[in-house]
Write a protein that binds this DNA or RNA. Structure first.
Lengths: 131, 131
DNA sequence: GCTATACTTCAACGCACATTGAATCATTTC
DNA sequence: GAAATGATTCAATGTGCGTTGAAGTATAGC
């Protein structure tokens, strides 16, 4: 229960990119609908009052990010249906927890400024016991 | 364990705004450091290789979003220390789960297109039992 | 008082990206 | 074949916002 290895900032770029994709209001709404099940382009357009080309655009961004899958209708290939990529969603949820899970919050005093050099009472106690 | 009331899209705007704040790479890095404990402006600047005014800028964005608190040093008021706002973090985590929690994923066929009007086998079964 | 330090604010710049409208593609239907 | 439908792609536009560099604020030390 001791050394927390301080999560790697290499993931930060990936995480930021995913969050950027998700942070766009229209895309968040699309995801909100897709979480409730399969939708086609026209359906999303109606629900969001958005032109079909814009829906396409946002869906392609979501697909490139791996968050959304598409599938053509077996009977009429003109229709396309979109679904949440469950694996990607799980990954995103895990990554989120790694960053923002409350367990990561740690006590720490800054390493500079008066508060950094100041030796507090409890610190004195700690030093006396260790050395 | 039945009716999931379909989360309100009124929160969507707030959520998107918070995610936008958090999605910025430098800010995500700052949050990453603050999760590990208190930091002052100069410390963050050194860690991120960023000019102090940029740090200030991003911190002010984070503060306006309520995610970060600041506190002046009691001995030397020139130094400012920043911390994660625990309550805001908890709220953010809750909001995230409301949106992206896997439990929200629901089965659904689109309401338009062939797949929408098509009556599948299991649907036939369902109808026979209900009517 | 004057200078140094820690941080903030301001104005200007530049770029990424959502939006728009038109054109294009791929199927299906007649 | 031609027309219609669902969806995508393209070029052009507008703008939000991160960045830059300089000026400003506040406190501390002399």
């Amino acid at each position: 229960m001791s050394s927390t290895p301080v999560p790697l900032p290499g993931n930060v770029q990936n995480m930021a990119e995913l969050l950027r994709v998700v942070a766009e209001p229209k895309r968040l709404l699309i995801l909100d609908l897709l979480m409730q099940g399969v939708h086609c382009n026209c359906e999303l357009g109606k629900a969001l009052q958005l032109a079909p080309n814009l829906i396409s655009h946002h869906l392609s961004v979501l697909r490139k990010a791996g968050l959304v899958d598409m599938e053509r209708d077996a009977l009429d290939a003109r229709w396309v249906y979109y679904t949440i990529n469950r694996a990607a969603l799980d990954e995103l949820n895990n990554a989120w927890d790694v960053f923002f899970g409350p367990a990561r919050i740690q006590p720490r005093r800054p390493s500079c400024g008066p508060a950094g050099t100041l030796i507090l009472d409890d610190e004195m106690d700690r030093r006396q016991h260790n050395e």
